[in-house]
Computed example of a mutant assay.
Amino acid sequence: MVKLSVVGIFADLDESAIADVERHVNRKTFAAGTQIIEPESDSSDVYLILSGRVRIVNYSLSGREITLEEIGAGGCVGQLSAIDGQPRSACVIAVDDTSVGILSPANFEKVVKNHPSVAWNVISELARIVRNSTRRIVDVSTLGANERVVAEILRRANNVCDDNGSALLSPVPVHSEVAGRVSTSRETVARVMSTLGRRQLVTKVDTGLFVPDVRRLEEFLSESIH
């Protein structure tokens, strides 16, 4: 059984504190493709991702799926509704077979109040969400669709950049997922990826998408903007 200590908000808890939290948690497994949280629903449980991966999505008025974030083992979702009691603001879907620990709003409140380090980690996580949302708003407001695609690939590359200034994105980013992430079409993503490939800014390899020089990709984006 996966221990709750893998969850980031519990990182500072000792074994006895983890055992205390465990008493309040129900565990459940969702098959890949299953909807875990329905948008606008009144449920307010917090889901702790123990294994697997989930995608947080929303939908435009035209019905286009917009990917907000993907969260793997160690993350959590649903804390906003648990805090303010408002309906869900997004949909959460299991990307892989995913095991979660579920905290009811009342139990989430107990854990936060009983363990100050958890409260601080929740605050830090909410701050991260605000920063990411702000960045996305700026990107959508100031960048064209092509530039948003490049910016997304650059963001991913920066997250895994090695000491040589290169990066391997594994698996290869799925065009539809990138399109949802940056609010554009799959055709636009395919066109931009083709351009990056011709310029040798990215290369498909057996293990993923290789970015040989992250700085060059950043310079390409900067030149495209200006």
Rank of each mutant, 00 (worst) to 15 (best):
V21N: 04
D139K: 10
D42W: 00
D14G: 13
T184I: 13
D162V: 00
L80I: 11
E40Q: 09
G144C: 04
S166V: 00
D45E: 12
N26I: 11
L209S: 04
I9M: 08
R191Q: 13
Q79T: 02
A106W: 01
D20M: 13
D162A: 04
T29L: 04
L126V: 03
P173Y: 09
E147Q: 07
A190I: 07
K28E: 10
L13R: 02
D163P: 00
G75F: 09
R64E: 02
E69V: 01
L48F: 11
T184G: 11
K110W: 03
I123K: 03
Y47K: 05
L154E: 03
L68R: 03
S99E: 14
N132K: 14
S183K: 11
V111Q: 04
N146G: 10
S224M: 15
V25H: 00
I37V: 15
A82D: 06
S43L: 05
V189S: 07
S62R: 15
D213W: 01
V178F: 09
A106F: 02
V130W: 08
L126E: 06
N121M: 08
V118L: 02
Y47F: 12
G208T: 01
G101D: 01
L143Q: 07
T34D: 00
L209E: 05
G52S: 11
D20W: 15
T188E: 07
I102T: 05
K28L: 14
I71W: 10
G8E: 08
N121D: 01
G208F: 02
E65W: 09
E152N: 10
E187K: 11
S5C: 11
A179K: 05
R181G: 06
G75E: 00
